[in-house]
Amino acid sequence: MYAIVDIETTGGGGAARITEIAVFRHDGVKIVDVFHSLVNPEIYIPPFITRLTGIDNAMVADSPTFYDVQDSVRALTKDAWFVAHNARFDYGFIKREFGALDEYFQRDLLCTVQLSRKIFPGLRSYSLGNLCESLEIGIEDRHRAHGDAKATVRLFEMLLLNDRQKHIPTDFYQ
């Protein structure tokens, strides 16, 4: 199982929080479950983040907090590889949110940036937008968790199909 994750945040710093999360649980062939939610970060969303994501303070004011969505995040990522584009970024935020709830969150990571460099060498850029453009993967709602996670699902499926060197573990949690 693979949990393909994308988040949006209030920024990249240590005090930043999650504003949106999407998790697609994938069995290596198809999506088997999905969770998506805006998240009230309980801190201010700066204007430059709103310009990038379209998520503003009013949008998240009545949204659940991370505490409210933790069970869904835990369930969809349990016994699965944590897959994300720049996985350490998304994983670090989620791990920190669980840590704030006094819970140790541990998942094994697969980064689609690193996998793409190995499986599709020689591309001009491995950013999600440029990679998807090179591989003709459409992205709807760019810089939103659901849209970027859905594009990452398509990218991951292409990686699985083209992984001749077996960089992607396929039997770890089965």
Score class of each variant (00 low, 15 high):
Leu110Arg: 02
Tyr2Ser: 04
Ile4Glu: 05
Asp27Trp: 12
Ile18Asp: 07
Leu155Asn: 04
Leu161Gln: 14
Ala3Glu: 00
Ala15Trp: 01
Asn86Ala: 14
Ala87Gly: 07
His143Asp: 12
Gly14Pro: 14
Leu160Thr: 07
Pro46Val: 00
Asn86Gln: 10
Leu161Cys: 10
Arg144Phe: 07
Asp68Val: 02
Ala149Met: 02
Ala149Lys: 11
Ile119Thr: 08
Ser63Arg: 06
Phe120Asn: 02
Asn40Tyr: 11
Thr152Trp: 01
Val69Leu: 09
His26Gly: 14
Gly28Ile: 03
Ile139Lys: 01
Thr112Arg: 00
Thr65Lys: 14
Ala61His: 10
Pro169Leu: 02
Phe105Met: 06
Ala61Asp: 11
Val73Lys: 04
Asp6Phe: 09
His36Ser: 15
Phe105Cys: 04
Ser37Ile: 08
Ser72Asp: 15
Phe66Ala: 06
Val32Cys: 13
Gly12Trp: 13
Val34Arg: 09
Leu110Tyr: 07
Pro41Thr: 02
Ala87Asp: 06
Phe35Arg: 15
Arg25Gly: 09
Phe105Ser: 00
Glu103Asp: 00
Ala58Leu: 14
Lys30Tyr: 04
Arg142Met: 14
Arg107Asp: 05
Cys132Ser: 02
Phe172His: 12
Arg154Asp: 01
Cys111Gln: 00
Val23Asp: 11
Thr170Trp: 04
Leu76Gly: 09
Val32Pro: 13
Leu52Asp: 08
Met1Tyr: 06
Thr65Asp: 02
Ser127Arg: 03
Asp71Asn: 15
Ala75Leu: 14
Glu97Asp: 09
Ile43Met: 13
Val73Gly: 10
Leu159Lys: 13
His85Gln: 13
Leu76Arg: 09
Arg96Ser: 12
Val153Gln: 03
Lys166Gly: 02
Phe98Thr: 14
Gln114Cys: 08
Asp79Val: 06
Ser116Ala: 15
Trp81Arg: 13
Thr53Ile: 01
Ser125Val: 00
His143Ser: 04
Glu136Trp: 07
Tyr67Lys: 15
Ser37Asn: 10
Tyr44Ala: 13
Tyr2Thr: 00
Ala100His: 08
Lys95Gly: 00
Ile49Phe: 01
Leu160Ala: 11
Gly13Phe: 13
His85Arg: 10
